[in-house]
Amino acid sequence: MIKPRIKAPVNSYESCKLQIKAGAGEIYVGYLSDKIKKLSFSGRGKESYNKTKTHVNYDEFKKIVKLAHEHGVIVEFAANMPMIGDDPDGGTKFQEYFLEYIQGAILAGVDRLIVGDLGNIIYLRKKGIKLPITASVFLATINSEQGLLLKDLGVDKLCLPHHLTFDEIKSIKEVTGLDVEIFAHFGCSFIESTCSLYHHANEEINFGLPCRGIYYLDKTDESTTILDTGEDCALCALPEIIDAGVTSIKIVGREMDYKLTSTITFIYNYALSSLERGEKMDNIMSHIKERFDFDFWEKGFCDTERCKYINTEYYI
């Protein structure tokens, strides 16, 4: 068995320490750029609605990279701004800002870049950036042919969208020969790159998670969470995830309390290490329930049947 690495969100030096302690093999992090005030060059605003900081300042960033490397943890740099084009006058000033952001990360010693726009992948390679690239979920790699296209452009790791089947994950991995990352914890209802229900974008108005909100339907005079097809937990699916050849499992949550996200990292790491020792998933779940305070998890994810990669009946 090849144990997938856990890729954990980091939004402070303290969070980095906790994530490493909890068993993260990779972290992802972005730093504050002064070129954009509220948004960022990664897939989040600088803060979320609840004022949690999602990015760190550059000095803290350098310390995080150093700490991670001291513990053999890979640092993936969040540079996954989902859409970018030329300046309105046809110039490239905004892309140069993006390049400066990347160069700062390279100086700090990051290991990989997470890029979320096809043009940015091409642009960075043209500018001589040789660091390995992870194709962000914002590229919506839903099939192996897109994986091959990205491979041609120098991508060597794919972060796959939320709603895929095990067979599809396995096929994408086998056909492309690339490293494959999937989302272990928390998820979206829509395909990320195509979704304009923005949240965690430094909004001061609380829209919550819009796809999980309640909507009133005119025609049937009912209120329902009709848009909610989000799946949140992949704990029970870990054996199949390993079997599919997944390299990294990602925990979402730069916008969340790091005590929560590092607890999630800890639980996944516990399960993965137990599987590595040859234990069965049923037994592992029993141990988790016995040894740890698991109530919040069961109420939030198990009871709501938000199981990832298992409930696929409404997948097109």
């Binding site: 070129k35 954009i36 005030k37 509220k38 948004l39 605003g45 859409m83 970018i84 084009g85 030329d86 300046d87 309105p88 046809g90 490239t92 000033k93 905004f94 726009d117 043009g119 091409i122 642009y123 043209k126 923005y198 974008a201 430094n202 909004e203």
Partner: peptide, 22 residues
């Protein structure tokens, strides 16, 4: 969301992502 961004950044961000020479 773009309320506090400079006009240049605002315009660049709302540009269609296909108007991109690369």
């Amino acid at each position: 969301i773009l309320r506090d961004e400079d006009e240049f950044v605002k315009d660049a961000i709302i540009q269609n992502n296909m108007a991109h020479k690369v």
